[in-house]
Write a protein that binds this DNA or RNA. Structure first.
Lengths: 241, 241
DNA sequence: GTTGATTGGGCTAGTCTCAGACCATTGATC
DNA sequence: GATCAATGGTCTGAGACTAGCCCAATCAAC
């Protein structure tokens, strides 16, 4: 690197791609993170275009691409719309190794570090906050939903649980950042086979995170999240060829 | 809020503005964060446009705007270029109140929470890492530079110190995010009068952060950063009318 | 002084993106 | 069966953005 890192950090590209590409990416996020699940309908084109700050033409190109790729089923007429048809594939044993190596060691390391930092940060902040009864309720509800989840709902509810922590801080910047981090490894997480023993292990860690936050202990919250994420991170790193 | 927060988080605008506006914003960041200081030259237009991923036409419009606004002095010919003329103004007593209230309570709270989370996260991650001698050297050098700083260099070196922590984690995503957080309150920080007593106080906190990181104690690192940032945050919140 | 490399200044043709209007289809309701 | 509201499908003209090219100014080196 012949430039200062700060130079590289600030004078980086202002746009990730063109509007069409970014829109496809964003919609794919919504689908893969489970914000809109199988069978759900996206908002009407006019409303969605306004939300995303793009023209209907561009949005329609993106929807068309996702429809062609088999993620969406578009129906016309009243009560029509773009319906999600995608369902995360059950991973085979070789899929994870392939997914990890497609990403590359540098990017994997970057993203795991990023995720660890922002999720620990969010948990710690939330543990520092005076929580209202409503906030406690949301957190406990997400936890119990996750614990009651079947295998096909687990990923979606796990995502919902993790993102709730960031959302409950009240900082939309932080929520956005955590969603972004989660998204960047969504494909890897989806490729991890879910074993009963792992789920039970994760369940304990989720409870520890909630307990630390409710107890107002930021150090414990930080440690619980770090331990939880390090398990996944070590697993992924182990699959680097 | 009649929508789920996750819906709002993911289905948000894909673009902050047009390419021109985003470019102006980015260059202003580089100037206000001190990445390019007074008298320094921006890279040649062709190179800078390539770095930012935009056309030269758009970049030139942005440079023109900043030149008109008095941030840059553009000179033609060999050894010419766009030279930074901006110097952060010495704040008067009313400036801070005005700056804080221009931002508004919701956004201020959002940004402060965001910054707290990501900077604590970065410090904690770095404290967990096995540091090389070179990394230790960079950290100690930034600290000593900051301690030796005069009043006119303090902001710039303070920024450099804080960003170094994120950069040393090796995650460019994290570095970018911390830079972004810092940027969002740059105007507020610049409006805080620098008193000798505050600087000494901050100096001690900076040392505590470095010591915790070098000692490999993530909890202590997290706590030190939180304490440091909470001081500033409380000050800013106090200026809300 | 002349030269030549480097840099900002400016032009053009083409593509991307947008706002807005209008058309086509669907299905619940009457 | 007719109606009508909601929704996707399509077109057009205008503006933003880009790539590539050439011009103009500057100044160190010769």
């Amino acid at each position: 690197m012949d430039e200062s890192p700060r130079f590289m950090t600030v004078l980086r590209p202002v746009r990730a791609g063109n509007a069409f590409e970014e829109t496809v990416e964003r919609l794919l996020q919504a689908i893969k993170l489970g914000v809109v699940g199988r069978g759900d309908k996206l908002p009407p084109e006019r409303e969605l275009a306004a939300r995303l700050g793009i023209s209907r033409v561009t949005l329609r190109e993106a929807i068309r691409a996702l429809s062609d790729a088999g993620y969406l089923d578009v129906r016309r007429g009243r009560y029509g719309g773009a319906f999600v048809t995608y369902e995360p594939p059950s991973p085979g044993p070789g899929d994870l190794r392939q997914a990890v190596n497609e990403m590359g060691v540098a990017e994997l390391s970057d993203v795991l570090t990023f995720r660890l930092a922002v999720e620990c940060g969010a948990a710690q902040v939330l543990a520092t906050t005076e929580l209202t009864d409503e906030q406690r309720g949301v957190l406990l509800r997400r936890l119990s939903e996750l614990e009651a989840a079947g295998l096909d709902d687990y990923r979606r509810l796990d995502t919902a649980f993790h993102l709730s922590i960031a959302e409950l801080t009240g900082s939309s910047l932080l929520a956005t950042t955590c969603a972004d981090a989660r998204l960047r490894i969504a494909d890897l997480l989806n490729a991890i086979p879910m074993l009963q023993v792992n789920l039970e292990h994760s369940g304990g860690q989720h409870r520890a995170i909630v307990e630390a936050i409710l107890a107002g202990d930021p150090d414990a919250a930080r440690r619980a999240v770090a331990e939880h994420l390090e398990g996944t991170a070590a697993l992924l790193r182990g699959f680097l060829t």
